[in-house]
Amino acid sequence: MSSEQDFKPLVVAFCCNWCSYAGADLAGTSRIQYPPNVRIIRVMCSGRVDPQFILRAFEKGADGVLVAGCHPGDCHYLKGNLYARRRVILLKRLLETIGIEPERLRLEWISASEGGKLAEVIHSFVKELEKLGPNPLKEVVK
């Protein structure tokens, strides 16, 4: 396993088009800097994030997965974000049973005007993942 200093965690982020993806765009427009460890995949709604997307990301070696959607009550599609919340809570339990720390999966509410929050979330998530070290499945796959 690589040492904590060399380790650069890779985060797959599923961001909803209306709030979090727009928030990520706003972080850019406002030139708010954050670590380059995240790759964002745009989905229309956080409720679109199928658990298999998350499991596939971990299976293929992602160190962390972020699901980001609109704040409760603000979902563009009424309640997709609430479905996302249920799924993430259940998935965290499942991840634990297969030996992946549940902290590697995060759900965050980030609105279209919260570019700063998006950057903060990525800062803190990357920091946490640096402490956790690489996805343990990477070793298994090797």
Binding site: D25, G28, T29, I32, Q33, Y34, P36, I40
Partner: peptide
């Protein structure tokens, strides 16, 4: 999206930003 979500948020890290753009 290699501007709002890349070049504008990793301005001091061209190497990683280029790697991210490729990804």
């Amino acid at each position: 999206n290699i501007r709002e979500q890349n070049s504008w948020v990793h301005m001091d890290n061209p190497e990683e930003a280029t790697r991210k753009a490729k990804d």
